[in-house]
Design a binder for these strands. Structure first.
Length: 883
RNA sequence: GGGCGAUUGGCUCAGCUGGCUAGAGCGCCACGGUGACAACGUGGAGAUCAUUGGUUCGAGUCCAAUAUCGCCCACCA
């Protein structure tokens, strides 16, 4: 006996301790080591003030699985953690805080506000790191980064300037999405479209100097205040004579031209469209084509401005209401219809966004998108699952310029300066002393900051020291795989790819492994408002990090949403407990000295050869699964192996040897037990790092930590198909006997003779060899092998196997009707199989066209079932005749 | 309007390049306090793999269509 483990698995006893142990020993720390191959993952940076939710837990677990596995494979692994400043969301939180103190952002002033935001960041910024540690993430904390760090900020500035100098960043008046609540422009990607049942209003505009009207249709009547034309299709017979005439804008009494433009769809609405160039992207284009000019009617908070005449100061929806009322009153409203409309909402605050013209900074996307598309088509960039590649390319193909300026204070300020006097724009690393054009010293910096995603787009290389050509950058970049949710492909993945290609010439990662959403047990999205979110920390506290991790990693496939239920966590906790107790069993039967000795292959028993062959196969399969990112499958295989094969079969088979007094046999069993256990721990470690390390530390003479031990390697010479076959027979026989006995309600305590009837020499050998299996696992009293059924009598339960029949004499305990019924059922099953096999084999096409080994397998099956059938029929006849 | 995903025992899901006698966990039924584990063991019941066609020697797996649910994209006022 080696060392005591506590009787039940209690993760709280060791998880924190082990995490500290790993950290203190710097196992997570990556070093540039030219003798090793690097393996790099950049952790998607959570919001700096955020809390760990199930989504984080899921993708960080997957990352940790891969990192731990590759570390054991001998790679120099870097998993770089960090956080994102999340400008819009952090700013909103800080605004909320100071408004609770009765102050506005403006009152506070920019500098003081940013100081507040830093305070906030310092206060809440560490939380998520601590939470991640609880999960067991083995990332290199010494390299943690924050998007507002000096280095990363420099990278942001550098990229901005380079893109500007290349003409890929420009400033211009465009229709952008304006969030009246966040009071900033947002990019197209940040707009969520929701189908909403609204109205469409038909409004007639009088024609100047005539007693006629032209009727337009609109879903946003308030924007009419900014109308600068009415457009019709040039081919539209209904309106041909109106083209070139002038309409009078009701309520406003502005004279606006009636123009012809292909954009107008004759089929839709009335075929006449009001044109509001400042408040609609299509109208904007029409306006450009017809030189209509601009008329902005809205303030940044969504109220109508002074251009709205008497509606000045009203909120946009209040204005809509009044305008409709007024139109109706004055007889301009023709009709109101229900109308399904796709309405854009601010992704962050859910406010309806207002398209409006604004002077903003943009990244020209087309030249950047092309290489990013190419990378995918070339195969330099892969998505797992691949279907997301289509989403990626589709988005890039239709991409529009990226609005990157935000009217926020928390973030990277644009390195752009303007001359107050001549209006010159200067983009530079340092604030210019004076205007490069007119020498004026009246210079001010652009007040805007950059879209948060502008800095996260640089994450794979800015975190490694770019634009400096650091050692880290040379060694660890490009990274290997990105693990993230499919919901941020547009925001982040795409932008990292094109930014990296543009700045470094390299694709930032080879593979993108997409995770789905973690939903609640009912399939609903976990959300704050529903209150149905399950806190990963609660789960860890109740069941341990390993159980949580295992739950997240199994039972679903990449890119698919998963339902999270506590029942599954509990099941996985039970699995951990199972392993825990199996270990206790092994350790309490282990002699420390013996455990250190090599296995003498001459002394291996059948079950030893079998389990060694099996673990060998499992090593191969698990490794292959991991290589293909089939993480759930890999985990499942280890689970099954541990529970079914190692615990339920191997340990049970080996017990008599451990309790017996054959020294060689006993010691061999110990050695095999420990050897297989070691491999199990290694294979399971990436998934359940804590329990496996804890157990490992209890094994005899463990010099190194499991976390840095060597990943097991498949070894062809351990493969033993013969042993596997023989054990398969033994197990089938045991299962058959158990089944027959239980169906007959024979208590397990009732031991009985087991008689094997077979003429097959190989089978005789293995039964003879393995008597103890049957005695121990099939309630056997003594084992008899014979070639015929003489002297058997009828007081038996029987089991029909391939080339073997088993009889268990149980005088007075047999219910013959029941036994017949049981065998009839068995016969039916065999009949079905026979029918199937015969059907296949009588099909000439099958025999000729199917691969040889498939046909051979089918023939074997047929033979087996024929043999079994013969026996069942015979046995049934015999039973019936004796009734 | 386009695109994608899901549909497998009561529930939640696996099933990778077609060969499967369709698996697991939970739940259910029966038995079991045996010297790792009742967070357990043993046995069992329970599935025409959504429907319909097609390809193939062979389809849960590939193709097409349909249905239901879900998601994403899209400037039609």
């Amino acid at each position: 006996m080696v060392e005591n483990l506590p009787k039940t698995y209690n993760p709280k006893d060791f998880e924190d301790r082990l995490y500290k142990f790993w950290k203190d020993n710097e196992y997570f720390k990556a070093k540039v080591d030219r003798n090793k191959k690097p393996f790099t993952i950049m952790m998607p940076p959570p919001n700096v003030t955020g809390n760990l939710h199930m989504g984080h837990a899921l993708n960080n677990t997957i990352q940790d699985v891969l990192i731990r596995w590759m570390r054991m494979e001998g790679y120099e692994t870097l998993w770089l953690p960090g956080t994102d400043h999340a400008s819009i969301s952090t700013e909103a939180k800080v605004v909320e805080k100071i408004s609770a103190e009765g102050k506005t952002k403006e009152e506070l002033g920019r500098e003081a506000f940013i100081e507040e935001a830093w305070d906030w960041t310092r206060k809440y910024g560490g939380t998520i790191y601590n939470q991640l540690e609880k999960l067991g993430v083995s990332c290199d904390w010494s390299r943690k980064r924050f998007t507002l760090d000096e280095g990363l900020s420099r990278a942001v500035e550098e990229v901005f300037i380079r893109l500007y100098e290349k003409g890929l960043i420009y400033r211009g008046d465009r229709i952008i999405n304006w969030c009246p609540s966040c009071k900033t422009a947002i990019s197209d990607a940040e707009v969520e479209h929701k189908d909403t049942l609204g109205n469409i209003w038909h409004i007639r505009y009088p024609i100047k100097g005539e007693d006629r009207f032209i009727t337009i249709a609109t879903t946003r009547p308030e924007t009419m205040l900014g109308d600068l034309a009415v457009a019709v299709n040039p081919e539209d017979e209904r309106y041909k004579d109106l083209i070139g005439k002038t309409a009078i804008l009701p309520l406003v009494n502005r004279e606006i031209p009636i123009i012809a433009d292909d954009y107008v769809d004759m089929e839709f609405g009335t075929g006449a469209v009001k044109i509001t160039p400042s408040h609609d992207p299509n109208d904007f284009e029409v306006g450009e084509r017809h030189n209509l000019g601009q008329c902005i009617i809205m303030n940044e908070d969504g109220t109508i401005n002074e251009n709205g005449g008497k509606y000045n100061g009203l909120d946009r929806y209040e204005a809509r209401k009044r305008i409709v009322e007024d139109l109706e009153e004055e007889g301009y409203l023709v009709e109101v219809k229900d109308h399904d409309n796709s309405v854009g909402h601010c992704e962050r605050c859910k406010t309806v966004v207002e398209p409006l013209i604004s002077k903003q900074w943009f990244v020209k996307m087309e030249p950047l998108a092309k290489p990013a598309l190419q990378a995918y088509y070339n195969g330099e960039l892969n998505f797992i699952p691949d279907r997301f590649g289509k989403i990626y390319t589709h988005w890039l193909e239709g991409i529009k310029d990226w609005c990157i300026s935000r009217q926020l204070w928390w973030g990277h300020r644009l390195p752009v300066y303007y001359c107050e006097d001549c209006g010159e724009t200067m983009v530079s690393r340092e604030a210019p002393e004076k205007c490069t054009k007119c020498d004026s010293e009246n210079i001010y910096q652009d007040p805007d900051t950059l879209d948060t995603w502008f800095s996260s787009a640089l994450w794979p290389f800015s975190t490694l020291g770019w634009p400096e050509n650091t050692e880290d950058l040379q060694y660890f970049f490009p990274t290997d795989v990105l693990i993230t949710g499919y919901d941020i492909i547009f925001f982040w993945v795409v932008r990292m790819v094109f930014s990296s290609l543009e700045q470094t010439g390299k694709v930032p990662f080879k593979d993108v492994l997409l995770t789905g959403l973690v939903r609640d047990a009912l399939g609903r999205k976990m959300s704050k408002s529903l209150g149905n979110g399950i806190d990963p920390l609660y789960v860890i506290n109740e069941y341990g990090a390993d159980a949580l991790r295992f739950t997240l990693v199994t039972g679903n496939t990449p890119g698919n949403d998963m339902r999270f239920s506590m029942e599954r966590v509990e099941a996985n906790r039970n699995f951990a407990n199972k392993l825990w107790n199996a270990t206790r069993f092994v350790l309490m039967n282990l002699d420390e000295e013996v455990a250190m000795e090599d296995i003498d292959s001459e002394l291996l028993e059948e079950e030893d050869k079998w389990i060694l062959s099996r673990i060998n196969t499992v090593i191969k399969e698990v490794t292959e699964n991991l290589e293909k990112y089939e993480i759930g499958l890999a985990a499942q295989k280890i689970y099954d192996f541990i529970w079914d094969e190692y615990c339920d079969w191997y340990i049970e088979m080996v017990k008599p040897r451990l309790y017996g007094n054959n020294k060689d046999s006993k010691e061999t069993a110990e050695k095999v037990l420990i050897k297989v256990l070691e491999n199990i721990l290694k294979l399971l470690h990436p998934f359940m790092p804590f329990i496996t390390e804890e157990i490992w530390q209890h094994l005899p003479q463990r010099k190194e930590a499991l976390i840095v031990s060597k990943w097991p390697v498949y070894d062809e010479k351990n493969k033993d198909l013969e042993a596997e076959k023989r054990m398969a027979f033994i197990m089938d026989a045991i299962k058959g006997i158990r089944n027959a006995r239980q169906e007959m309600n024979i208590p397990p305590s009732k031991k009985a003779t087991i008689i094997f009837v077979t003429k097959d020499e190989k089978i005789k050998d293995i039964i003879d060899y393995g008597k103890r299996y049957f005695i121990n696992l099939a309630s056997g009293e003594n084992i008899i092998i014979q070639e015929d059924k003489n002297n058997l009598g009828e007081d038996n339960v029987s089991v029909v196997l391939d080339r073997c029949e088993i009889f268990v004499p149980l005088k007075d305990l047999i219910d013959f009707d029941k036994e017949i019924e049981r065998l009839e059922k068995e016969k039916e099953k065999i009949e079905d199989e026979l029918k199937r096999a015969r059907g296949k084999l009588s099909n000439k096409d099958f025999v000729n066209k199917a691969p040889e080994h498939i046909v051979a397998k089918e023939r074997e099956k047929l033979k087996k079932y024929e043999d079994m059938m013969e026996k069942v029929v015979e046995r049934l006849a015999s039973l019936k005749s004796n009734q």
